[in-house]
Amino acid sequence: MSRGGIDIQDPLVEDHLDDRVTEPDRTATGERSTATPDRPAVRSGARARIPGLRLVGWVVVPMALLGLWQAVTAAQVFSPVALPAPGAVWSAGVNLAERGELSGHIAISSQRVLLGFAIGAVLGLLAGAAIGLSRLADTLFAPSIGAFRAVPSLAWVPLLLLWLGIAETSKVTLIAIGAFFPVYTTVAAAFRHVDRDLIEVGRAYGFHGHRLLGRIMMPATMPSIVAGLRLALAQAWLFLVAAELIASSQGLGFLLMESQSNGRTDRLLLAIVLLAVLGKLTDTVIGLVERRLLRKWG
């Protein structure tokens, strides 16, 4: 009963709130899984209204950055080895593609990300829902999960290699760990904070158990869940690079490592650009899904 202020707030909630950070992109080594505030910054439609401005953001500004890059290399501010021209990076890409290597790198990296993301997101949803819905589960397990969350991702790598070997399993597992926590944190917080008044309405109209969950709680948490998934996907790309940097023979992270040891800055930049493009692409896809869901459930 929230009436009369009898409901004692869970002290852990504050804890989680403090931990929540809006920006998912920290460095690959120092990151902790991050989540979003209740009102995620995704209702972007309200802000970027002018269509022309949108085009500027998506096309003109990136082109300008490219132009700046070109200008800097043309002026030979840095040596071509330190900073190759955009054209050189492009031909490095074409060269790799012609040798049939590029598609392999992209395919295996994407596969790892999507697989790890799917596994981590599903587990995060289940764990988050359990912790968010059950005070008992929250009391018993939230502190331990919080402790695991505090472990920097790279700390898992040696253990995963030892246990699971250098094959796909260890990489996908690491990515799944990365995707798990944002989903877990947002979903748990969202279920904890479902409007008590709405739950009371549901009860007053005879809903309980799975009906209350399906009719009231799931829809009410939908926006947070999608925001959590979006963060998890960003996190999955982050963890991919961490996984591939350490032990792999294929993938964009491997391309980074290999190019570093061969001094192929052009390929190195190619891998970075590809990571940017792929990350943005998957984020855009999930953003579109999010917009549709918010229109229905928001």
């Binding site: 008044d197 009860r203 007053a204 229905k296 928001g298």
Partner: peptide
């Protein structure tokens, strides 16, 4: 338990936004 013979309305509409 919650009695099906009753219906309640509150100070706030408490409608489901979706």
């Amino acid at each position: 338990g919650v009695d099906p013979r009753c219906a309640v309305a509150f100070q706030e509409p408490r409608l489901l936004a979706w």
